[in-house]
């Protein structure tokens, strides 16, 4: 393997969720977290799972990642059932989950060292390539605590991208950042997504964020988590979080989120809003 083959974007995957259910045992009985979730996600599609806290969106993401098992139904990644975490589906968490005992470069190398068939030199070159992609080429030997929140998430993104996954699963990765840093990262993520052609599933409770990033926004309702509605977002990219169009779409989705759920969605919504 060479730098060229390693940094050439892998073909994005197709994900199918079929009747996924999940229950959690609590002190008295069990609570249904996810109810019959079926969803098709196309190759290279950017899908945002949107919903209030407690709607099971993180659980759903963990099931796609293979970190948790569904009680019923299954997740197929390019037709193969997901049973455990795999390098083809990398996860970014809300907290960066970077390892404080390693410097920035070694954090990125951590995933590469687990990938068979790479020599020392190649690993290093690949890591440097991705650190450059996220704009941190000057911070190879910084320690995690020396980085700002935004930089930490950039390193986490580089680490996730480094093993060249087909799918990127992102669990509210920008929720803990300030607005200014978030805006930069929206731009960077869209650029990287366009350049690297990943299938991205992005969990958020921020409506504007979902509209700004997603090709499609899947609205989940809580207790139990169900797919309430889907919105295609056909706005030109790159999008800005403060675009009027983004705001407009966000308003519509917020209305749906607020309460149409119980009586069913009003007629004009759905595709192409």
């Amino acid at each position: 393997m060479t730098l060229a083959s390693e940094t050439q974007a892998a073909a994005p995957s197709k994900l199918s969720l079929r009747g996924v259910e999940k229950h959690f045992r609590v002190r008295r009985g069990s609570v249904q977290a996810l109810d019959n979730i079926s969803l098709e996600i196309g190759e290279g599609e950017f899908v945002c799972l949107l919903g209030p806290s407690g709607c099971g969106k993180s659980t759903l993401l963990n099931i796609v990642a293979g970190l948790e098992r569904a009680d019923a139904g299954q997740v197929l990644c390019d037709g193969a059932p997901v049973v455990e975490p795999g390098r083809d589906r990398m996860v970014m968490f809300q907290e960066s989950a970077l390892f404080p005992w390693l410097d920035v470069l070694d954090n990125v190398l951590f995933s590469l060292r687990l990938k068979p068939g790479l020599g020392r030199r190649e690993r290093r070159e690949v890591a440097e390539f991705y650190l450059q992609l996220v704009g941190l080429e000057k911070f190879h030997h910084a320690f995690v605590h020396e980085l700002s929140g935004g930089m930490k998430q950039r390193v986490a993104l580089a680490r996730a991208l480094a093993s060249n996954p087909r799918v990127l699963l992102m669990d509210e990765p920008f929720a803990a950042l300030d607005a200014l840093t978030r805006e930069q990262l929206y731009g960077d993520l869209q650029r990287i997504w366009r350049e690297r052609r990943k299938t991205i599933v992005f969990v958020t409770h921020n409506v504007r964020e979902a509209v700004c990033l997603g090709d499609r926004v899947v609205l989940l309702s809580p207790h139990p988590g169900r797919i309430q509605e889907e919105f295609q977002i056909r706005l030109p990219r790159p999008r800005e979080i403060n675009d009027v169009d983004v705001a407009h779409h966000a308003t519509l989705i917020t209305a749906a989120l607020r309460g149409y759920g119980r009586s069913g969605p009003p007629a004009p919504q759905g595709d192409g809003i």
Binding site: G66, P85, R87, E95, A97, F110, L114, K115, R159, S163
Partner: peptide, 14 residues
Amino acid sequence: VPPIFARAARTMGS
């Protein structure tokens, strides 16, 4: 040890 470390490591193939 925060459980997130082990989870993150698992997704990377550890």
